[in-house]
Amino acid sequence: MAKESKTPVILSLSSGKGGVGKTSLTVNLACALAQKGSQVLVVDGDMALANVDVLLRFTAHKTIRDVLERGEDPMKAVIFVEPNLGVLPASSGVPEMVDLGPAEHVLLGNILSSIVGHFDYVLLDTAAGIGSSVLWLNTFATHNGVVVTSDPTSITDAYALIKILSREYGRKRFFLILNSVATPQEGQQTFDAIARVAEQFLGIQPQYLGCVPRDNVVLKAVQEQLPFVKGAPRSKAAEAVVELAERIRRFKRE
């Protein structure tokens, strides 16, 4: 583990709607970034219904909740599934972790700030919805990723999330990832529609990070608990995620 303090890219992945692929993309992007030799941390920000541990097949002994409630050393809670890929796990099935209060968010901010300096990339997987913790994690991030499918409800929810974050929290730079697309054209068209409305009504210009095709390897990866960028590196989905990781590597640090 590097001792020096880095300025990491902190990328949140949110969507408004659930089940659109946030966790799958977070985990696989993290693997792709780690494969390039970067130090990567995944924070399971779905703090009440964690499943990063499921997708990466590990058992968490300490979680964000232990760190928050019992003051455990956060670095000791981080599980390294690879030498350069750590996960800060969350608890599962704990309703009081759904939406933390302002004081707990301050504490969580301190905790995360104390460990992110060890990493080049910190990916924040978030819960569905637009609860206070989802919004808070987005304000903690340096870059706001929004995962969206071509499903109308996903589009509306993603736009609603962008609207709240830009109007109430002053976030202006959003990176859209179109997931489960049938064709790249479909991804581009859906992005164009959202970008046009965001420009017209919110005065902001979301950026297109790219798209990931609908691909059975994603489902299989969940069942086998092995990220598809590793288990099926030649699949279309894996290639798309590697390409996304390349674009993330070009993010400016601030």
């Binding site: 589009i155 509306t156 609207k163 109007r167 109430e168 529609a193 959202i194 046009r196 409305v197 009504f201």
Partner: peptide, 13 residues
């Protein structure tokens, strides 16, 4: 207001 307005919905689709 952060609610998604009808005109925004129309524009999205």
């Amino acid at each position: 207001e952060t609610e998604v307005l009808p005109e925004e919905r129309v524009a999205l689709f």
